[in-house]
């Protein structure tokens, strides 16, 4: 399989600010790739490096093997769905979608036909005559998608496309996007700060921190085996154990992660403490206890007995569940 996008030691420095710093990255063709990280971690800059709105200050970017260092955005066969959608307010939906075809010189009848096809694909068949201001957020998002896809790009870039939508709509759109990507077989590169979104949609993802990639892998890799304490913290819900505790549990003096699902409550166990919080999740209850100053969470499946707040309890787990990682 060819690589759709390759980064070789790519940097983008703004003066002393290292927005992207020595990133190596390979995105496989036809994959759904997510870039995850907090704001300012460099993920959006990486996306803009692919689209051409930023130029690298070091390293090389290849798209389908072609060095794009000197290719301006409008000549890259890559399209973007912008975070604010960036629909042209003075054009109706049809003209927005047909825009890319128009600037390439396609005749009116043909580009309108293609635009209508694309609108049908995103289920907005009858909306061609409306202005963007007359659409809801979700509808605008689909128009932006159609406007990008009509150009038949080899890579589709999505910059936090679901960020502005409410929860229910976001979940529906996640499924739709995923289905669309499967159907078209296109490479999607997706920027998000929402770890659930990244984990649930991507085939593989990169976690960014301070301009560098902290970890790259499949969602399972990232979730089960976070490479660093940062990844474990950011991906969340996993227990992060300091070196002393790891050693007390019989491991080396290193940071480790312990997934709450891999634990169970026991009368006695290696970790014990007082219950400080309970959170009912439907499928189970998350029990948080204070173990000598470290917060540890355990997941109690539905139907089992849940201790009360203030009770003393202990946690047991399989030895293999403890995952060692780097401190940084």
């Amino acid at each position: 399989m060819t690589a759709a996008v390759e980064f070789h030691a790519v940097s983008r420095h703004f003066g002393t600010v290292k927005a992207v710093d020595g990133v190596d990255l390979t995105i496989a063709e036809g994959s759904f790739f997510a870039m995850l990280g907090p704001s300012g971690s460099g993920k959006t800059t990486c996306l803009r490096l692919i689209s051409g709105f930023e130029k690298p200050t070091g390293g090389q970017i290849r798209i389908f093997g072609e060095d794009v260092s000197n290719t301006p955005p409008h000549l890259r066969n890559v399209n973007t769905v912008f975070q604010d959608y960036a629909l042209f307010p003075h054009m109706n939906v049809r003209d927005n979608v047909a825009y890319g075809l128009m600037v390439k010189g396609m005749g009116r009848a043909e580009r309108y036909r293609k635009a209508e096809e694309m609108l049908a694909l995103v289920k907005l068949d009858s909306y061609g005559d409306r202005k963007p201001a007359q659409l809801s957020g979700g509808q605008r998002q689909r128009v932006a998608l159609a406007r990008a896809l009509v150009n038949e790009p080899r890579v589709l870039l999505l910059d936090e496309p679901l960020g502005a939508l409410d929860l229910k709509l976001r979940e529906a759109m996640q499924d739709e996007l995923k289905a669309l990507q499967k159907r078209l077989g296109l490479t999607f590169v997706f920027v998000t700060h929402d770890q659930h979104e990244a984990l649930s949609m991507a085939d593989s993802l990169a976690v960014f921190n301070e301009g560098r990639i902290a970890q790259i892998g499949t969602p399972q890799d990232i979730y089960d085996r976070p490479a660093t304490r940062f990844v474990a913290d950011f991906v969340g819900s996993s227990n992060v154990l300091p070196p002393e505790m790891t050693r007390a549990l019989g491991g080396p003096a290193e940071w480790a992660s312990l997934r709450p699902e891999a634990t169970r409550l026991a009368a006695s166990g290696p970790i014990s403490g007082q219950v400080t919080a309970l959170r009912y999740l439907g499928s189970g209850t998350r029990v948080v206890l204070d173990a000598n100053g470290t917060e540890i969470a355990a997941l109690v499946p539905a139907g089992q007995t849940v201790p009360a707040e203030g009770d003393m309890t202990a946690i047991a787990f399989e030895p293999g569940a403890l995952h060692l990682m780097k401190g940084a």
Binding site: F53, V78, N79, T80, Q83, A86, Y99, N151
Partner: peptide, 15 residues
């Protein structure tokens, strides 16, 4: 005029 409009236009292939 938001900057993203201009980027969108370039992104879609406009000179």
């Amino acid at each position: 005029v938001p900057n993203s409009m201009l980027e969108a236009s370039a992104d879609l292939g406009a000179t």
